[in-house]
Simulated assay, not measured.
Amino acid sequence: MTASTTPGTPRIALITGGSRGLGRSAALALAADGVDVILTYVSNEASAQAVVSDIEAMGRRAVALRLDVGDSKTFAAFAQAVKAALAATWQRERFDFLVNNAGVGLHVNFEDMTEEQFDTLYNIHFKGTYFLTQKMLPLINDGGRIVNVSTGLTRFAMAGASAYASMKGAVETLTRYLAKELGARGIAANTIAPGAIETDFSGGMVRDNPQVNAMVAGFTALGRAGKPDDIGGAIAGLLGEGNRWVNAQRIEVSGGMLV
């Protein structure tokens, strides 16, 4: 059993893919709530450091570390990098919140999907989430929390998302098992399932294509496509003290898509 965070000490969140999009929004929303952040990036260090600077300007502490969530062979070394960052920046051995957010979009119809494309999605979205969480467990405080990012596409089906949505469906099942198996340590695990969001995901399809954006708005009850801050705020809220009893849940944050 690991020790819980001492009352009065800052909480620390590890957010994968925190240099842009939903991860960046979650990092900033958590910082606004008084949470320090370790964020990861895969290639754009400048963007990651810009988020670190934004968090520091809010009076919080932050560190950016490189991580390719699609390469599970690097996770042991990444765990050591997290341990070193915790010791150097916070003089601590463990963090409180893990947000498995990093991912890529791939819009390919079922009949055209290649094994290579399928394996890329599997390695990033499911295998990466599974084994990175496993490697991080010794570094998560008892009483900590895990949030896995899924998609509305596990509830409703749209052509071109069969492999991506299947990986996220697996993540949703994994989340319930994490809640069951980690409950003895007081660790809660939940899934956030965004709807269509205006980011660079899938080549910026929702953000940059007016026809797609209008279509999304048309079948969303609140009448627009989602913004990154709609999701970042939801993640921060789920990790807030008022939601500490929420566990093993899939929470869709879609503005009411296809209801």
Rank of each mutant, 00 (worst) to 15 (best):
2 T>K: 13
2 T>V: 07
2 T>G: 14
2 T>I: 03
3 A>V: 05
4 S>Q: 14
4 S>N: 13
5 T>L: 14
5 T>D: 14
7 P>A: 09
7 P>S: 04
8 G>V: 03
8 G>N: 11
9 T>M: 13
10 P>F: 12
10 P>C: 12
11 R>Y: 06
12 I>Y: 09
12 I>F: 09
13 A>D: 08
13 A>H: 04
14 L>W: 06
15 I>E: 15
15 I>F: 06
15 I>K: 11
16 T>Q: 11
16 T>Y: 09
18 G>N: 10
18 G>Y: 08
18 G>F: 06
20 R>H: 06
20 R>P: 01
21 G>S: 08
21 G>L: 06
23 G>Q: 11
25 S>Q: 07
26 A>D: 09
26 A>E: 11
27 A>S: 11
27 A>Q: 07
28 L>W: 08
29 A>S: 12
29 A>L: 05
29 A>Q: 10
30 L>M: 14
30 L>G: 03
30 L>E: 13
31 A>W: 08
31 A>E: 14
31 A>I: 01
32 A>E: 15
32 A>F: 00
33 D>L: 07
33 D>Q: 12
34 G>L: 06
34 G>W: 08
34 G>K: 06
34 G>R: 08
36 D>V: 00
36 D>L: 07
38 I>Q: 09
38 I>R: 08
39 L>Y: 05
39 L>H: 07
40 T>A: 07
40 T>C: 05
40 T>N: 05
41 Y>S: 05
41 Y>M: 10
42 V>L: 14
43 S>A: 14
43 S>E: 15
43 S>K: 11
44 N>R: 13
44 N>Q: 14
45 E>G: 00
45 E>W: 05
45 E>L: 09
45 E>Q: 14
46 A>V: 03
46 A>I: 01
47 S>F: 01
47 S>Q: 14
47 S>D: 15
48 A>I: 01
49 Q>T: 03
49 Q>M: 10
50 A>T: 04
50 A>N: 11
50 A>F: 01
51 V>F: 00
51 V>Y: 04
52 V>A: 04
52 V>I: 05
53 S>F: 02
55 I>Q: 09
55 I>Y: 06
55 I>S: 02
55 I>V: 06
56 E>N: 13
56 E>R: 06
57 A>K: 11
57 A>C: 02
58 M>A: 13
59 G>R: 11
